[in-house]
């Protein structure tokens, strides 16, 4: 309870006093006034200038036109209307360009995506229809729910962002889906593996998601790759009950092995481990043997 004069102890006061307990001693060297209360020194001591910033002679100096947007002393519209900042911090936000279920179904129907293998970012980009650019802060695929009623394929999808409806649409058909984070370097390698292998660089280990994305990728409801697998099975059941479909049995499925294929959190290509170098000319794979290398490529730090 805050008393009228604001001096009595309140919850706010208690919290503030608790806060300064652990802070440096309030002393002469660390106090300051409230911002914007300092008296602004007048720089032009000659007072009002003759022309008042309106230039010399003519309509500008003599006319009575107001500045653009000036509404006669009332707050102008541009100040009063709230801003909706869709593009706030656009330059630093992670971008997930959309690929719809309809697009995916069309690719499958036209045989441009092989559903007997897991469908990941490489298989989508190999169609040549989608492009990801790490210089534009692209972080992978957002699989959207457009065409979810038409989607009829049984796939093992690995995407970077998705919604609940998409998960339901895929799992209803007996497929599986994982949301998986790739850092920009890994994403560039996945986007064009051939160009990456030609460079002769070792396959990078995938970094863990940044702090603000960690919750998303460890949530079983999003089928996050860091979530507990048992909780993911539970979430599958719950989602089936929510949308009212019968979850096809994975145990008796002939494609069970393919549907349950998952990459290690550090791994970015199926069958290839981080640290390996693919030699395209000799058609061989070079593997590091040094302990330090192995320790580096097999630890998350």
């Amino acid at each position: 309870m805050l008393n009228g004069d604001g001096n009595m102890s309140s919850k706010v006061t208690e919290r503030a006093l608790n806060l300064i307990k652990s802070m440096p001693r309030v002393a002469l060297n660390n106090i300051k006034p409230l911002p914007h209360t300092a008296f602004k020194k007048k720089t032009d001591r000659r007072g009002d200038r003759k022309k008042k910033g309106r230039g010399d002679k003519g309509q500008g100096a003599r006319g009575t036109w107001d500045p653009l947007g000036y509404e006669g002393r009332q707050n102008p519209l541009i100040d009063t209307s709230p801003r909706e900042r869709y593009y706030a911090q656009y330059a630093v936000r992670r971008q997930y360009p959309p690929v719809s279920l309809l697009d995916l179904q069309r690719l499958i129907d036209l045989n441009r995506v092989n559903t007997s293998r897991p469908v990941d970012i490489t298989s989508i980009c190999n169609t040549g229809l989608f492009k990801f650019d790490i210089s534009k802060n692209h972080f992978g695929v957002n699989l959207t729910d457009e065409g979810c009623d038409q989607f009829a394929a049984k796939i093992n999808a690995e995407v970077q962002w998705t919604s609940e409806l998409v998960i339901a649409a895929i799992e209803k058909n007996g497929g599986t889906i994982t949301t998986r984070y790739y850092d920009p370097q890994s994403l560039a390698a996945l986007y064009d593996p051939l160009a990456f292998f030609k460079k002769g660089h070792p396959i990078p280990k995938c970094k863990l998601p940044p702090q603000d994305a960690l919750l998303y990728y460890s949530d079983p409801n999003n089928r996050g790759y860091l979530a507990d697998p048992e909780k993911v099975l539970e979430a599958r059941e719950k989602l089936a009950q929510k949308y009212g479909y019968k979850l096809p049995d994975l145990e008796g499925d002939p494609f069970k092995e393919m549907l349950l294929m998952r990459k290690d959190p550090l791994q970015i290509f199926f069958g290839l481990e981080p640290g390996w170098i693919v030699n395209l000319r000799d058609k061989s794979v070079l593997k590091p043997k040094d302990d330090d290398y192995l320790r580096y490529y097999h630890s998350a730090q």
Partner: peptide, 13 residues
């Protein structure tokens, strides 16, 4: 009211 008021640093200043 004397020993537990809100720490108004601006008033000190």
């Amino acid at each position: 009211d004397v020993f537990a008021v809100y720490p108004r640093i601006d008033v000190l200043h």
